[in-house]
Every structure is written in structure tokens, then in C-alpha cells.
């Protein structure tokens, strides 16, 4: 908590330090570019991601088609941009879902001591499932759709956030000002919403960035396996999956969506690392 207070008090200085680290700055710029390209896709490319053009099937990258075309003559650059919209939306939604579940479970375990053993063991059990395997099983049970992929990945990553939230809540609830608030007759709900929640913003932000990165990778994996989003819906994962068939003759089909995933996940990890050092200097800066 002291660290949080210190960082918000000295925000401009530490923010400068944050941006001055080249790795963080590169990550942030990269992330902004990726998001902007996806959001403003129609202004970036004149091509439609869905328009078929049999005459220009499987064309290699050229001045006209920067990333080449696929087996239906669709422009890969346009498809990569538009697919980014869905891939990024899935990633962000997973952060939101796992954030909400993690917050509820984490605060409950960290603040209400009697609930702690049960919730902590449940989190241990959930963390024992390999992420892709758990997500696959959940999607299999719920049915394959974008919403269910988000739900499955949200549940899969919630324990990671819950653990962080629990740990931070445990620290904060022992602080003197919480005790003082109790003594002054402030209700539990008010303490939770006014004081505890505020102390959780930084750890959730840091961990959420990493969950965003993992979720992007996992979604791509699920789509690639054909057990996630329908193959007709362009995400980076489904594009790689479809491009696989033409790997020998037209490798650009799978190359560019893959590069898009790598750059996005890399930028998220760089930003997450920077955020961790900025917001939580107590955590090892070496890792």
C-alpha cells in the first residue's frame, strides 16, 4: 500500500521513468500501433477482408497486396487487420471476465478469513489444470462460440488474478487505517469498496496485462485446433489454421497472422513488465 501511495504521489516522475525505459516505450508504441491498425482497419486498407477474387488467388506479397492473398483471393493484410479486432476483443474480454471473478474470489478469501481455506484450495485445484486443456474442456461443454471461448478462458485465468487479489487484500486489511475505519464504525462494505478496492487497482492492472497476453495465445491455440471460434470467423488463430494447408506453396497465409500474434503478445509483456516495475517496486525487478 505504501508503494501504491508513493507511486501515485510521484506519478509524473515515475511515469517518465516508465516511458524512458526503451523496452517499455517500444512495447507501448507497438501495442498502440497494433490496436490502432485493428480499430482503423477500413482507413488503413482499401481491401475488404471478405471480398472474394478468384482471379487473384494465392498471390505472393506485392505492392498491391502487401501480405499476399489467400486461396479465395482475399487480401491477407486486410484480413490480418480485421482479425485483429476479434482477437484483441477476445483478449480484453477475457481480462474483464477473469478480473471480475478473480476480484470477487480474491477479496472474499483475503478479507473474510473463514472463507479463505475453501477458496484457496479451490484456486489450487483450478490452477492444476493446464490452461489450454481446461479451456478446451469448458468450450466442449459449453459449445463452441466466441462468447463461450471468452467465458472458458475467463474461468481458466481467473485463479491467477484471484491469487494476486487475495495476497494484496491480506496485506491491506492489516494496515492501521483499515483498523481505524473499523473502530470509527465504517461498515464492511464501505471498507471494501473505498479502501480495499483502491489498493487492488495496481496488482490487477499488472496481472491483467499478462492475462491479456496469455489469453491471446490461448485463443489462437483453440482456434487453430478448431475447437474454439468457428473457422469462418477470421481470428489470427483461424487464419493460421486455414493457411496451414498452403504452407508449402503459399507460406504467407500463415506467416503474417503469426507475426501479428507474436508482436501483440510481445508488446503486452513489455508493457506488463514496465507496469509491474512502476506500480509495484517491491516485486522483483530482476524477473
Amino acid at each position: 500500500m505504501a508503494a501504491v501511495a508513493a507511486s501515485s504521489a510521484g506519478a509524473p516522475a515515475s511515469l517518465r521513468a516508465f516511458l524512458q525505459r526503451p523496452a517499455v516505450a517500444i512495447g507501448l508504441v507497438l501495442l498502440i500501433i497494433v490496436v490502432a491498425l485493428a480499430v482503423f482497419a477500413p482507413f488503413v486498407t482499401p481491401f475488404s477482408p471478405t471480398k472474394l477474387s478468384i482471379a487473384s488467388r494465392l498471390k505472393p506479397p506485392s505492392a498491391e497486396h502487401w501480405f499476399g492473398t489467400d486461396d479465395f483471393g482475399r487480401d491477407i493484410f486486410a484480413r490480418t487487420l480485421y482479425a485483429g479486432r476479434l482477437s484483441l476483443t477476445v483478449g480484453a474480454s477475457v481480462v474483464l471476465v477473469s478480473g471480475v471473478i478473480g476480484l470477487v474470489l480474491g477479496v472474499a478469501a483475503g478479507y473474510f478469513r473463514r472463507l479463505d481455506p475453501a477458496i484457496s484450495r479451490l484456486l489450487d485445484a483450478m490452477m492444476a489444470f493446464p490452461d489450454i486443456l481446461l479451456a478446451i474442456s469448458l468450450v466442449a461443454a459449453l459449445g463452441a462460440s466466441v462468447v463461450n471461448v471468452i467465458a472458458a478462458l475467463g474461468i481458466t485465468y481467473a485463479p491467477r488474478l484471484a491469487r494476486i487479489v487475495r495476497a494484496s487484500t491480506l496485506v491491506t486489511r492489516e494496515l492501521t487505517f483499515i483498523e481505524a475505519a473499523h473502530a470509527l464504525g465504517v461498515g464492511t462494505f464501505a471498507i471494501l469498496t473505498r479502501h480495499i478496492l483502491r489498493s487492488l487497482v495496481s496488482p490487477i492492472l499488472v496481472q491483467g496485462t499478462f492475462v491479456f497476453a496469455y489469453a491471446m495465445l490461448a485463443e489462437a491455440g483453440l482456434s487453430f485446433l478448431g475447437v474454439g471460434v468457428s473457422p469462418d470467423v477470421p481470428t489470427w488463430g483461424t487464419m493460421i489454421s486455414l493457411g496451414r494447408e498452403f504452407m508449402n506453396t503459399a507460406p504467407w497465409l500463415m506467416l503474417f497472422p503469426g507475426i501479428a500474434i507474436v508482436l501483440t503478445v510481445l508488446s503486452l509483456q513489455l508493457v506488463g513488465d514496465g507496469l509491474r516495475d512502476l506500480l509495484d517496486p517491491r516485486l522483483s525487478q530482476n524477473v
Binding site: L217, I240, V265, Q269
Partner: peptide, 26 residues
């Protein structure tokens, strides 16, 4: 090393697998 580690953690393993098949097998 730090950058390379972060980069390799950003690569989907299935995609790297496809690239390796393309280079070393095909």
C-alpha cells in the same frame, strides 16, 4: 537475453512448429 526470452515467450508454439516443419522437414 532478456529480449530474446520475452520474444520466445510470445511465439505460439504451434506456429513455431509449423515454421520448423517448413524449414527442417519440407
Amino acid at each position: 537475453v532478456v529480449v530474446a526470452a520475452m520474444l520466445s515467450a510470445s511465439i505460439p508454439s504451434f506456429w513455431l512448429g509449423l515454421l520448423l516443419i517448413q524449414w527442417f522437414s519440407v
